[in-house]
Amino acid sequence: MAFYLSFLMAALVGGMIAIASNPAPYFAAFGLVVVAGVGCGILVSYGGSFLSLILFLIYLGGMLVVFAYSAALAAEPFPEAWGDRVVFWRVMVYGLVVIVAAGFLLTGDTGLLMSVDAFKEFSVIRADVSGVAMMYSSGGKMLVICAWVLLLTLFVVLEVTRGLSYGVLRAI
């Protein structure tokens, strides 16, 4: 289990390096997908399987849209991947930074294995599911605000990208 978790965390940091090294948007979006999937895996191993499922479905749904948009807006004839010279050096530098930081920070017992439920399989109420119940009962007003924010974001995106010839991101 500890090996599995360490592998997931390494993949998480690796995915972030893949995004931060600034390749073409196609590949950066792929790095985001890796980060999202691996993050959900980490959530599962901490005992939040329902939360993880929800995150995976919704986040990857959003990711698909982001991928479509970035692919449509930044249609490059020669996209840079991680093997290309500039991006490769960034990957190397970020990787070095991560290794050095890990050498300083990961000392002693890191306490990797902690479940959110105190009694693991014997818990009567699962923490993530009861959190969802809380969100619908006492957090109802927050939920309304969140729904409003999503609606607002929809209008913002439509307003910013509307028009064929003067689409905002293409104007730069």
Binding site: V156, E159, V160, V168
Partner: peptide, 9 residues
């Protein structure tokens, strides 16, 4: 979020 479309209008 709300000011972004106003800025880019």
């Amino acid at each position: 979020l709300a000011i972004v479309p106003l800025m880019a209008q």
